[in-house]
């Protein structure tokens, strides 16, 4: 592998980490900050990707298209559309039991998957949509995709900064309070349903943005890339492993888990005999699942836990056990 190849590989790798980082940040708004359970991440991701793909590609026979709009428009509409769908789901389920939201998100992700596969006039079915323009394509020559990485990085920084600002604002304070004791927040005069709705819509819109970034990164989208279990699950593991509630933890989780995921793929591709490749993929998925359960059992707060208060009693107990360990 020469230097150019290595550089291209690193750029490719970091771009994907960035996209997954945006997804993990989106989930962190919903789960980490507010405690909303979304297992339809793949659905919102797909909406963003397909919206941008359809709006920015050139005309092609067989399905809707030919708008040839700029990438920024595609991303924006994707964000708005994901947010709108989240708004509808949220309005129906957010004032009910918390797990109803989870079930509804599966439902919407399933329906989106079916639409992607079957509505050929819209999505070109299983063949997918190709020829999605790269960012600033045609402006200059970019064989390594470094422009793409810069766009992803910019999006990541903007999302991160916006969320950190929100977390430190009174809005973030109400969110943390809701996660702790919703009933008391209601008694403090807050419309908690509105707050949770806001968080759900915001998180889903961020996932839509990630989808758009993904579409323009690969230049091609197909239903296979948005398998509900695959995407949704990896993001969950990233957030839990990194430390839910903490935006930096979400990013760290995206980096670590994607390194493990892509690294093991590289290893199996290099060393496993071809006839075992599909099996190797299931083994990797199995191991990720196992990793999640182990984290939940042994370190539920993740690598970078959200800073939380410890009661004095716990603190004392900890100090005492430290002392007795020392002796």
């Amino acid at each position: 592998m020469d230097l150019f190849e290595l550089f291209t590989f690193v750029v490719f790798f970091l771009s994907l980490v960035g996209i997954y980082g945006v997804l993990a940040l989106g989930l962190n708004v919903q789960w980490g900050l507010t405690g909303l359970f979304n297992i339809g991440i793949a659905g919102f991701f797909a909406i963003g990707a397909y919206t941008s793909a359809i709006l920015t590609t050139a005309d092609s026979p067989g399905y809707v298209g030919g708008f040839g709009l700029p990438m920024a428009v595609g991303l924006l509409v994707g964000i708005l559309l994901s947010g709108t769908i989240a708004l509808l789901i949220g309005l129906i389920t957010l004032n009910l039991r918390e797990d109803y939201l989870a079930i509804a998100t599966i439902g919407i992700a399933e329906i989106i998957r079916l639409v992607l596969k079957n509505e050929e006039w819209l999505t070109n079915g299983v063949r997918g949509i190709a020829g999605i323009p790269r960012p600033f394509a045609g402006w200059f020559d970019d064989p390594t995709g470094v422009t793409n990485l810069l766009v992803v990085a910019l999006a990541l920084v903007v999302v991160y900064a916006a969320l950190e600002r929100g977390r430190q604002s009174p809005w973030g304070r109400v969110m943390r309070a809701i996660r702790e004791r919703e009933i008391a927040v209601m008694a403090a005069g807050k419309n908690t349903v509105r707050f949770r709705l806001e968080s759900f819509v915001l998180g889903s819109a961020i996932m839509g943005l990630a989808g758009g970034l993904y579409a323009h990164f690969f230049g091609f989208v197909s239903p296979e890339a948005f398998d509900p279990m695959y995407t949704t699950f990896l993001i969950w593991v990233m957030l839990i492993a990194g430390g839910s509630g903490n935006n930096r933890g979400a990013l760290l989780g995206a980096l670590v888990i994607w390194t493990i995921w892509a690294g093991t793929e590289y290893l199996t591709n290099a060393f496993a005999p071809p006839e075992y490749l599909t099996r190797a993929a299931t083994v990797r998925m199995f191991l990720v699942g196992l990793l999640l359960e182990i984290i939940l059992l042994t370190r539920p707060q993740g690598l970078l836990p959200e800073s939380q208060f410890v009661t004095r009693r716990e603190e004392r107990r900890r100090r005492r056990s430290d002392i007795s360990d020392g002796k």
Binding site: F37, M229, W236, T282, V283, M285, F286, G289, E293, P300
Partner: peptide
């Protein structure tokens, strides 16, 4: 919290499915 069980069960779903597929 019950939602932790929810996540754990999603993980189990994935584990079972990869086992079957394997």
């Amino acid at each position: 919290a019950p939602v932790i069980l929810l996540i754990a069960s999603v993980g189990i779903a994935l584990i079972l499915r990869s086992l079957v597929q394997f």
